[in-house]
Amino acid sequence: MPRPVHVVSLALALMLSGVAGAADEPKDNRKPVDVDIWVIRASTKSKDISPELKSFADKLKQRFKYTGFRLERKIKETVDLGKTLTTSLTGGYQALVTPKAREKDKGAERLALQLQVLKEKEKKPRMNIEYKLEAGAFQPFGAWDLEGGDVLIILLSAK
């Protein structure tokens, strides 16, 4: 009987085309993401600046009252796309980083990320942001209260 054979052939062809299409998708877009988080304490009581933050601190001092910038820790982790990295920052704060997708824009690679900053014992995040930026570039976020009048600033990059 010819009709059922045509249906089966059509379905098979559609399935095969779908698989072929999936195989053509660049594998780079699925590779894990290297996440780099710098935890910074900004203070008005100090003028000490960590060497790695010199250029960044010079920019911030032009806008804000803080004079001291201390790099408290660096966090480097690798996360699969769609998975969430949860890490402690300082002063009871936590960061949740979820790489959403990789994109190519005019030949440059960009990443879509979600960042949540939470304080311990609090249910709602202090900040929840979804954004896109060039791969490997640092995006600064701040500033959450720490003890002694200092504030928490984080620098986040992904590639």
Binding site: N128, K132, L133
Partner: peptide
């Protein structure tokens, strides 16, 4: 020197 992002695109932002 740090390489800061210069082409940030914010899709959603919620705060406390």
């Amino acid at each position: 020197p740090l390489r800061l992002a210069t082409d940030l695109e914010i899709d959603r932002l919620e705060v406390y």
